[in-house]
């Protein structure tokens, strides 16, 4: 019995890790007032960059691979920052374009890595029958650190003020545009790291469309957890557990497989609707989704 519980927890943590990392990234830029729906694309380029650095050589530097993934995520996110912060484009549509560019570019540039082996994957840590990826530990620590930083430090407050009331922050001398650009870059780097986890640890290979909708679920998760980093841990675990159920019940039950493949997406809708009915949307940063133009209300 204990083994079943441990296995469920191990699997839920594993699938939950990319969700948590990407969700933390999205919380970071949304708390600064910028929505980025392009997480799916950011994860895809992150996964590709990590795999491109690590594949083919047994002594590839994995730190470098993770760094490359975060850099790739940030670089793609820079497009979003320029479009939405500098050029005041619609944040939702720009994010959608980013998702298309990211998955498309990863598919085109990654074709040569398809089927290549990864000699040097990020090994899991083992404690008896319990295994955990270093990525998971990093994600959990990061959630705690981000909660503390946003809630209790001056720079965290500055970031939040830009998302809640950019005009007031501007009057107090905060550089609204720069803060938002940095938040978007940070969000991109974390989504890239989520992709690195998929390529270097979870699947340890590269395939087109390997993100398989996880990025979209991460975006929805932000609303579900009310823009709070610590709650994101519970949210990511919950959806990780769902994926584990799908994996376990597939083929072992009279329910058709397609029900399980649709389940995470149906559940996102249910969860968002519940959050909406509870008035969760009221937790959103007040200036979320709107470009800031000095002198305009």
């Amino acid at each position: 019995m204990d083994n079943v519980v441990i296995e469920a927890l191990v699997r839920a943590l594993a699938v939950g890790t990319p969700l948590l990392l990407a969700c933390l990234g999205a919380i970071l830029n949304e708390r600064a007032g910028v929505v980025n729906l392009g997480v799916e694309g950011l994860m895809a380029v992150g996964a590709l960059a990590a795999f491109a650095v690590a594949a083919g050589s047994p002594d590839a530097n994995l730190w470098l691979a993770v760094g490359a993934a975060m850099l790739a995520g940030a670089a793609l996110a820079l497009l979003h920052a320029v479009a939405t912060v500098t050029l005041r484009a619609n944040q939702f549509v720009s994010g959608l374009a980013l998702a298309l560019i990211g998955t498309g570019a990863a598919g085109l540039l990654g074709k040569r890595f398809e089927g290549l082996p990864l000699f040097n994957k990020v090994a899991d840590w083992t404690l008896g029958s319990f295994t955990i990826s270093p990525f998971t530990v990093a994600a959990l620590l990061l959630a705690g650190a981000m909660a503390f930083w946003l809630g209790a430090t001056r720079s965290g407050l500055t970031l939040r003020s830009v998302g809640e009331n950019p005009a007031a922050a501007d009057v107090l001398g905060v550089n609204v545009g720069l803060t938002r650009v940095l938040a978007v870059l940070g969000g991109g780097a974390l989504a890239g790291m989520a992709g690195a986890f998929l390529a270097l640890s979870y699947r340890s290979s590269w395939a087109d469309n390997m993100t398989a909708g996880l990025g979209w679920i991460a975006v929805a998760l932000v609303i579900f957890v009310g823009w709070r980093p610590l709650r994101a841990i519970a949210g990511a675990l919950f959806f990780g557990f769902l994926y584990y159920l799908q994996f376990r019940l597939q083929g072992n039950s009279p329910i058709p497989t397609e029900v399980f493949s649709a389940m995470p997406f149906v559940l996102v809708l249910v969860v968002l609707a519940l959050a909406g009915m509870r008035g969760q949307a009221g937790n959103a940063p007040a200036a979320l989704g709107r470009a800031y133009v000095r002198g305009e209300r």
């Binding site: 694309g41 479009a83 050029l87 484009a89 619609n90 980013l98 298309l100 498309g104 598919g107 085109l108």
Partner: peptide
Amino acid sequence: NLPFRVVDIFSGVILLCLIASEV
């Protein structure tokens, strides 16, 4: 022999340029 995904690149880049040019 390019992956069909190139269509996503075209779509994404065109969309991004369009909305970024609206200003």
